[in-house]
Every structure is written in C-alpha cells, then in structure tokens.
Simulated scan of single mutants.
Amino acid sequence: MTTESSDARPLPTLTRRSGDDLRCSIARTLQVLGDRWTILIVREGFRGHTRFSDFRRVLGIPTDILTSRLSSLVEAGVLERRGYREPGARERFDYHLTAAGDALLPVLGALAEWGNEYRPSGHGPSRLYQHAETGEATSIAFVTAAGAVVPLTDIAIVPGPGENDPGVGPTHPLAAHH
C-alpha cells in the first residue's frame, strides 16, 4: 500500500482543532471515517451494497445522516456516485468503492480482528477474512518490504517527514509492556 497517491483528493472542509491534525495521518483519516455510521457504510460497500435504499435498510440509519455521510465519502474520494435509472423511474444514484475505498479493506480487517479478540459477541465472528482461492484464514500484520512479518513487540513508531516536533523520538509502544 502506498502512502501517497496521484489521484488522492483533498480532504473535505472539516473543522481542525490544531496544526497537528493536519500533519497526523490518523487525525486526517478520522476526519473522513471518524464516526460509527461512516465506517459501517464502507463496510456495507464491501458487502456489495451500493444503493441508498440498501444502506438505509441494512443499517437502519436516518435518511439525513445517510445523505450526509455518503456525500462526505464521495467528496473524500472513498466512494464514487454513479447514476442509474430503472424503467419508468427518475434517475437515482448508487455508490461504489473507489481505489481509496478498496484500500480500506485492511483497516476493516484490523477492526474486525480487534473486535473478535477484545469485544467478542458470544456468537463468533460475523465475517471471516480468508484467501479467496484456498479458503485459508488470513490476519492483519506489519510486513517488511522483503515480506517478513514483524511481531507487534518489534514495531517502532518513528517520526516521519511531516512531524512538527523535532524533539519527538522513536517509540516502541508494545516492547515495554511485554
């Protein structure tokens, strides 16, 4: 997965609390995906739902909130709005994941893994992430450029070129706990 994209769209105009929010990748992502309904709409996009009525029916989301969240996802480049017309009806729109939306699959997988582990339902996972051809179970991991899986305890979070605090050094968040 790349960190820069030539077809990346600017963020929708959102309230920013500090200059750090502009620099922090997580804060910028949460500006787009940071509420319950938005991430559930993306989840339903991966489940094959594309129409307003499908999102409304499956999620039970109020119409005004769904309209707002779909518009935000289109504006952020996560969904693409496409027109369609059923015979005898007015033109309507459906919503399809873009490349930026498709790139959220590992995010949803990580959220699902975390929820299965730390917030179990008592019924087992609602969805499993498997290799499409073999059916082998998959998991989310940090992987080096050479393909080696890195244990979480060996991950260091280091300042990137966008860091605005020159005094911030690398952190090893899990190494100290284990």
Rank of each mutant, 00 (worst) to 15 (best):
A112L: 11
Y129V: 10
G115N: 08
S121V: 01
L128K: 06
L108C: 09
F93G: 03
F93T: 02
D94Q: 11
W114R: 14
A110M: 06
Y129T: 03
A100N: 11
L97A: 11
D94F: 04
R127W: 02
H123T: 04
L105Y: 06
L108W: 09
P120Q: 09
D94I: 04
H123F: 12
G124D: 01
R119V: 15
A103Y: 08
S126H: 02
V107Q: 13
Y118C: 10
Y95A: 08
S126F: 00
Y129F: 13
E113V: 05
W114L: 15
D102L: 10
G122Q: 12
E113C: 02
W114V: 15
L108V: 09
S126R: 14
N116Q: 15
R127Y: 04
P106F: 01
Y95G: 08
P106Y: 06
G115I: 07
Y118M: 11
G124I: 01
A99Y: 07
L105A: 08
N116P: 01
P120K: 02
A100D: 12
G124R: 01
S126P: 02
W114M: 15
E117R: 15
R119M: 08
L111V: 07
S121F: 02
F93I: 03
E117C: 14
A100I: 01
R127K: 02
A100S: 12
L105F: 11
N116R: 13
P120A: 04
Y95C: 05
G115R: 10
E117A: 15
G115E: 08
Q130G: 00
E117P: 01
S126I: 00
L111Q: 12
H123L: 15
R119C: 12
H123V: 01
A110E: 05
G109A: 13
A103R: 12
G109T: 12
Y95T: 03
E117K: 09
W114K: 15
L97R: 08
S126Y: 03
L108R: 06
Q130I: 09
P120F: 00
E113F: 07
W114N: 14
L111K: 05
G101D: 09
G122E: 00
L111R: 09
S121T: 15
Q130K: 02
H96Q: 07
P120R: 00
S121Q: 04
A110C: 13
R127C: 01
V107W: 10
G115K: 14
R119Y: 10
S121I: 02
G124S: 14
W114D: 14
L108Q: 07
D94M: 10
G109L: 07
T98L: 15
L111D: 07
G101L: 09
A112M: 05
L104E: 09
L105V: 06
A99S: 05
G115Y: 11
A112H: 09
A110V: 04
T98Q: 02
L128Q: 04
A110R: 14
W114H: 14
R127M: 15
G122R: 00
D102T: 05
G124W: 00
S121G: 15
L104P: 01
A99L: 08
L104G: 07
F93H: 08
A112T: 07
A110F: 09
L97D: 04
G122P: 03
A100W: 03
D94W: 08
A100M: 13
S126N: 02
L104M: 12
V107H: 09
D94R: 09
G109M: 10
G122I: 07
R119E: 13
S121D: 13
A100G: 00
G122Y: 10
R127I: 11
S121E: 14
F93M: 12
A99T: 08
